[in-house]
Design a protein around this nucleic acid. Sequence first.
DNA 1: GTTAGCATGTAAGGAGTTACATGATTTT
DNA 2: AAAATCATGTAACTCCTTACATGCTAAC
Lengths: 203, 203
Amino acid sequence: MAKRSGVLEFAVLGLLHESPMHGYELRKRLNVLLGSLRVFSYGTLYPCLKDLVARGLLVEDHTADGHGHHGAKAAPALGGNAAAARRSKIVYRLTPEGEEHFGQLLSDAGPSAWEDENFGVHFAFFGRTDAAIRLRILEGRRSRLEERLDLFRQSVTRTKERLDRYTLEAQRHGLESVEREVRWLNELIETEHDQRQVGPPAT
Amino acid sequence: MAKRSGVLEFAVLGLLHESPMHGYELRKRLNVLLGSLRVFSYGTLYPCLKDLVARGLLVEDHTADGHGHHGAKAAPALGGNAAAARRSKIVYRLTPEGEEHFGQLLSDAGPSAWEDENFGVHFAFFGRTDAAIRLRILEGRRSRLEERLDLFRQSVTRTKERLDRYTLEAQRHGLESVEREVRWLNELIETEHDQRQVGPPAT
DNA sequence: GTTAGCATGTAAGGAGTTACATGATTTT
DNA sequence: AAAATCATGTAACTCCTTACATGCTAAC
């Protein structure tokens, strides 16, 4: 019914774009993809999937699979092809509209793409993102962090004295974390520029 | 009516424990204290204050101040004593019950104190926290992060190949961020131990 | 005298969690 | 056959945001 989280929706579409899956597995891949930044529970995921189906971006495959008893051991171990292993319940798959929508999300280089909540997902799908978009997002993210550094340093010089050891320590650590992420972004941006000169401009 | 966020409530009580304040200023100090980790809006803060009043942990001072027209310029600049400057509207102050409750929150060294959401606030008030509690929280936080490192490294070795450049890069950066926080905690813990030997055991 | 910032709030709703409820399949 | 884990879902609730509404005071 309601509009679901951009982050979760984006991530779900992206993972299903790689290969169809059912909800339980999707959740695990989701939590690996977003690397402990966010952990979604089933209570969030399943309603989201239903919503995406209702909006025509996904379809459910209730893979009848034949029957169900005993057989079909089919390589359940960790290394195997996850999509093919033990097709038991409801497998979700992108519709053409879903692919189209995912493509639009990928090409969004607006400010929301470099906010804290969204940057991680966008970055996770950079492998399928246009080079120009990648660059804009990385640069947008960097300016965002630099703004934050400015605010930070202002408030430090304003309130320098009369802060206890721990507050100072927290501020210092926070500041260094942001500076570190800026350096990381600088490296990534440089690499993007290098590749632009080496690699072909299209496809 | 409803039970409000532990984080916000804790932070509000802690700031008001330093000095009484009205909501508008409280919000600014809050966002400095929590250093861009979280930004609370008025829509969150004011209902929270009302709730704390209803529960008897705060009282409102509607400082009548005399009347209100023209006079009373009273050092509004940044450097001045904030509590005394331009007493205009509703100033909140801890009750004895509020102080008691804040004290209990300070002495909580359970697992929730070192979760991502809460660790920041607890740390921010370490200056008023018992040394033994500080140590337990820092060590708890460290084990929490080390657990996360283990999971992380497992999933890396499991899925090493068939990940694109960007996913790998994100994992690497995430891993290093956590490792860096662990080193930071190690330093803090060492400092705590040193001080324990130097400083007096009580008060 | 009007813009900018201080100050306090409310209503509606978005985003996600926890706890619960259920059943199928695999492993021991 | 019991225990673990896979798999799907719902209901109630928490926490917080956005957008709105209001009025006062300071600065230009």
